[in-house]
Simulated scan of single mutants.
Amino acid sequence: MHFLKKFLIGLFIAAISSLHLNAQQKPKFKVIAFYTAKSDQAHISFVHEANKWFPQLAYKYHFSYDSTSNWDNLNAAFLAKYQVVLFLDTRPEKSEQREAFQKYMANGGGWMGFHFSAFALSKSAYDTNWDWYHNIFLGSGGYASNTWRPTSAILRVENSKHPVTKNLPQTFKAQPNEWYRWQNDLRKNPDIHILLAIDSTSFPLGTGPKAHEIWHSGYYPVVWSNKNYKMVYVNMGHNDMDYEHKYDKTNKTLSFTFGNEVQNKMILNSLMWLGKGKKVK
């Protein structure tokens, strides 16, 4: 009888262990992050930070996280393995990569882009040559201007009913960032849901030294979604660096994007919402 009891207890423990192992082996959803990390030191710093932070988040909340700097992986066969795509710093440049991404999104894929992933400027290395992405998908159009130096801003929730802003305070202080202004007024786009914007208590925002790098008024969306896609754009993703000693090549990071509990909650909300999207065809 004693042997039978020990045997049954052993079976129970084995069953529980098996269930736990299976749960670990089957993530709720899979995330793939694309990045370049070659030019701006602040963007490189953010990419390295993201590729350390997201795996920790994935372990805690039971999803998987992979990353790649090979943008040729932006193809139908590769993307079919993942429910969510992240652009950490740049965007795809080849036509076949862009076509694959557009089809992925049209078929129900999830996407989150950070900071520079929305950048486009005529006659620059990131030209305004992808109309669908910048004007239809993001809705923002090209880059217009930015604040400088990277500075914290008070952000205001514009849509408290969206899953991305769930349980966020009405206003909160974000991490230091280079804040972007866009050519298009997103308030006039019926497809865009503005989720967070810079609160007026942030002004003046930026320290210069150039006068136009300091904002004193205006409306600036920083997180938004497009109702026709499972997507979120987040303007954050530019760490503050020791620019005064950049020629010493120390590249010291002075602030970290993921060093903010409320901001992190918004990013987690976004991922969990995107990961519940319909199955990609």
Rank of each mutant, 00 (worst) to 15 (best):
F7S: 01
L8R: 03
I9A: 14
G10F: 08
G10D: 08
L11R: 06
L11S: 07
L11A: 10
F12D: 05
I13R: 07
I13P: 06
A14Y: 09
A14F: 15
S17I: 14
S17R: 06
S18Y: 14
L19V: 13
H20F: 13
L21H: 11
L21K: 11
L21Q: 13
A23K: 11
A23V: 11
K26Q: 15
K26I: 13
F29H: 03
K30V: 12
V31S: 03
V31E: 01
V31G: 00
I32K: 01
I32C: 09
Y35R: 01
Y35T: 04
T36E: 06
T36V: 14
A37G: 06
K38L: 09
D40L: 07
D40P: 00
Q41D: 06
Q41Y: 09
Q41K: 09
H43R: 04
H43P: 00
F46M: 08
F46R: 00
F46W: 12
H48F: 10
E49F: 03
A50T: 12
A50D: 03
N51G: 06
N51L: 11
K52N: 15
F54L: 14
Q56M: 09
L57T: 04
L57A: 06
Y59Q: 12
Y59L: 14
Y59G: 07
S64I: 08
Y65N: 02
D66H: 13
D66P: 03
D66V: 05
D66S: 14
S67F: 15
S67K: 04
S67L: 07
D72F: 13
N73M: 05
N73L: 10
N73T: 04
L74I: 12
A76N: 08
A76L: 09
A76R: 10
A77R: 05
F78H: 13
L79F: 10
Q83M: 03
L86K: 01
D89H: 02
T90R: 04
R91P: 00
P92D: 01
E93S: 08
S95M: 12
S95H: 03
E96C: 04
E96M: 05
R98A: 03
A100E: 00
F101S: 02
F101I: 10
Q102K: 15
Y104V: 08
A106G: 06
G109R: 00
G110T: 04
G110K: 00
G113F: 05
F114S: 00
F114V: 00
H115E: 05
H115D: 01
F116M: 01
F116I: 02
L121W: 04
S122I: 10
S122N: 10
S122M: 06
K123L: 12
K123I: 11
S124H: 09
A125M: 09
A125P: 04
A125Y: 14
Y126I: 13
D127C: 05
N129C: 12
N129F: 05
W130Y: 08
D131A: 14
D131G: 08
D131C: 09
L138C: 02
G139A: 12
G141W: 13
A144D: 11
A144G: 08
A144Q: 09
S145A: 11
S145I: 07
S145Q: 08
T147S: 14
W148F: 14
W148C: 07
R149M: 13
R149N: 14
P150R: 02
T151Y: 01
T151M: 07
S152D: 13
S152I: 02
